[in-house]
Design a protein around this nucleic acid. Structure first.
Length: 423
DNA sequence: TCTGGGGTCCTAGGACCC
DNA sequence: TCTGGGGTCCTAGGACCC
């Protein structure tokens, strides 16, 4: 019998930091962090920063002293750059496997035919990516997705592995699982690992040894699947063609507290413009729109959940002005003049393919064609000249509510005016 | 003073129907 | 006085991920 097929999980190391380092070589040997929107939290850390013990997600103001003390370099997020680097990474990966499944901006599962010896293959893949994109990655190879994720973590944590870990059933693996805590398992987060701990299950090897029925009863089908995968039985499918996206969310915290309806309208309009653009780029229409407003959750005494209003569309659409019209109606209903808001957002749901829509009366179709052409033209101009070159007046021009982004790097790869210069 | 954004899946419970 | 039960659909909320 041939050996079972193997999966590789390829994952960018400190991805956003690595993207910044590709185009700014002086950052390569300095501790570096990338911040979230509004320069609020740390969302990517270079190895030097991880070694200092600075955790993921910590607010910037809490580490001011360490930043000063260790001369940590700071960048604001630059998603156009990271998305473009992601595409380059995925292009290279495509050439290495007959089947691959893109899992996130910096991760992909690859299917390895059983005839290929995995270690030389993974080492070559890693070297090729570094050469072609400048990005360092780690590779974990195993018979199931959960084990491939685990292998990838082991590769990342051990410099001696040269960034590649092949899963093997041996003494070394056994003793590693005896000291690795359950929260290292993909799918077991903070709440579940705490629950496991209170039930005397601390390590991965203890979780594997737990009875399947108990896992099913207390952790549901999701937990049972993870347990199976750890027993080398694949339960998570391989999605080669990306599934239709189910929802589109656009939201931002404001740079200040906002209480005027006009500013909120600008924000909602801005979010709907980009959400609708995304709808059209993937040839889908939205069947429902949800709007939410939130006050400062750190300031409130009682825990405040954002207030939401939803609207189901009779005819699903991707036409920006139609979505904005509904968005404004919802906003006016939800808005309280005495309230100070810190965040606003919209969610489009019930997405479906545009061609699958039912046909309407002739006049409506003519009208729709006009609208479609208008949107296509707008999208084309924005694609060519950079986002928001053309937008709707309702989105506002100076956007007084928007957050700060003081250390943003140039769009080295996606904007003609910001290309790096070689002298 | 300052605390991210964008997704998915699962489950419990209510509404409704027959 | 006694007052069913099963199925389905929908939604909100929780847990997770990057």
């Amino acid at each position: 019998m041939p050996p079972p097929p193997l999966l590789a999980l390829v994952d960018g190391n400190n991805f956003f930091c690595s993207c910044e380092r590709v185009f700014d070589p002086k950052l390569r040997f300095l501790p570096l962090i990338v911040l979230s929107n509004n320069d609020g939290c740390v969302i990517s850390r270079s190895q030097e920063v991880k070694d200092l013990g600075i955790p993921m997600g910590i607010p910037l103001f809490k580490i001011k002293d360490q930043i000063h003390q260790h001369q940590i370099q700071i960048r604001s997020t630059n998603f156009p750059l990271y998305n473009d680097m992601s595409q380059r990474l995925m292009q290279t990966l495509k050439r290495f496997a007959v089947k691959n499944e893109i899992y996130s901006i910096d991760e992909s599962f690859l299917w390895i035919p059983s005839t290929i010896p995995p270690r030389p293959w993974a080492l070559e893949l890693r070297a090729k990516i570094l050469h072609e994109t400048g990005l360092p990655v780690s590779v974990g190879v195993a018979p199931t997705k959960v084990l491939a994720k685990l292998s990838n973590r082991l590769a990342k944590k051990r410099p001696s592995t040269a960034g590649v870990w092949i899963w093997e059933n041996n003494r070394e693996t056994e003793s590693l699982l005896k000291i690795t805590p359950c929260e290292e398992i993909w799918g077991i987060g903070g709440k579940l690992s705490l629950f496991l701990k209170t039930n005397g299950i601390q390590t991965i090897s203890e979780f594997i040894a737990t009875e399947r029925g108990w896992v099913r009863q207390h952790l549901g089908v999701t937990g049972e699947r993870i347990w199976m995968e750890l027993h080398q039985v694949p339960t998570l499918g391989f999605e080669e063609t990306p599934q239709l996206q189910k929802s589109i969310l656009c939201s931002r915290s404001f740079g200040k507290e906002v209480s005027s309806l006009e500013e909120l309208k600008e924000a909602i309009s801005t979010h709907l413009v980009s959400a609708a653009e995304k709808l059209r780029s993937q040839k889908t229409v939205a069947g429902a729109i949800h709007l939410f407003l939130a006050s400062n959750r750190f300031k409130e005494k009682k825990s405040s959940t954002p207030s939401t209003l939803s609207h189901r569309l009779l005819i699903p659409t991707d036409y920006t002005p139609a979505l904005i019209e509904i968005g404004f109606k919802l906003l006016e209903k939800l808005y309280r003049p005495d309230q100070k808001y810190k965040k606003a957002g919209i969610l489009l749901s019930d997405l479906q393919e545009r061609n699958h829509q039912q046909l309407h009366w002739f006049e409506e179709t003519v009208q729709e064609e006009k609208q479609q052409r208008l949107m296509e033209t707008m999208d084309r101009i924005n694609r060519h000249w950079g986002c928001e070159k053309i937008t709707l007046g309702s989105s506002g021009l100076n956007k007084s509510w928007s957050g700060k982004s003081s250390q943003r790097s140039p769009n080295y790869t996606t904007s003609w005016s910001e290309l790096p210069l070689v002298r």
